[in-house]
């Protein structure tokens, strides 16, 4: 049952973990494995730039992956696993920030930006009154303009 854990621990002690996922740590049941990866994609490898732990080969990422699978074996739901990891390592490991008060600005931005933009768009369109008429050019003006525009033709 815990075979994969043992081999994962062995892999941890090796100097160069080769891969983001070692076959040894994987679940044999594909459905469970898929679930593990889905959870893993929401956790950040703490020493990388925004890579998830399933995309990183750093030792710490490996550590977290093993922890995720361990929690799954304990029977945790996805959310329980995530909050367990976040409790131990801080919100920093969650690739998707929590929807809490401190992240209010972050989560309100998309809707805010969209509403603000569309409102601005609507107001802009509205406040522009159709001009009474295009400042009517007199025939003389038009002739003068046409002359200016044709000027090049007269030149060699």
């Amino acid at each position: 049952m815990l075979k994969f854990l043992c081999s994962a621990l062995v892999a941890l002690t090796l100097a160069t973990p080769a891969f983001s996922i070692n076959p040894g740590e994987m679940f044999e049941d594909p459905a469970q494995e898929a679930r593990a990866r889905e959870i893993g994609r929401q956790l950040r490898c703490m020493v990388c730039q925004n890579q998830s732990i399933f995309d990183s080969n750093a030792g710490l990422a490996n550590d977290l992956r093993v922890l995720v699978r361990e929690r799954m074996l304990e029977g945790d739901t996805d959310d329980e696993v995530l909050s367990y990891v976040a409790d131990r390592y801080g919100d920093y490991v969650l690739l998707e920030p929590t929807k809490s008060a401190k992240n209010a600005i972050l989560w309100l931005t998309p809707a805010g930006a969209l509403i603000f933009g569309l409102l601005g768009f609507a107001l802009y369109i509205r406040q522009r009154k159709e001009p009474q008429a295009v400042e009517a050019l007199t025939d003389a003006d038009r002739a003068a303009a046409k002359h200016l525009l044709k000027q090049r033709d007269s030149k060699p």
């Binding site: 295009v134 400042e135 050019l137 003006d141 038009r142 003068a144 303009a145 046409k146 200016l148 525009l149």
Partner: peptide, 15 residues
């Protein structure tokens, strides 16, 4: 015609 008038207005303004 409308486009032409617009361009002509612009031209006069520039001139």
């Amino acid at each position: 015609d409308a486009a032409q008038a617009e361009i002509e207005a612009r031209t006069l303004k520039a001139a």
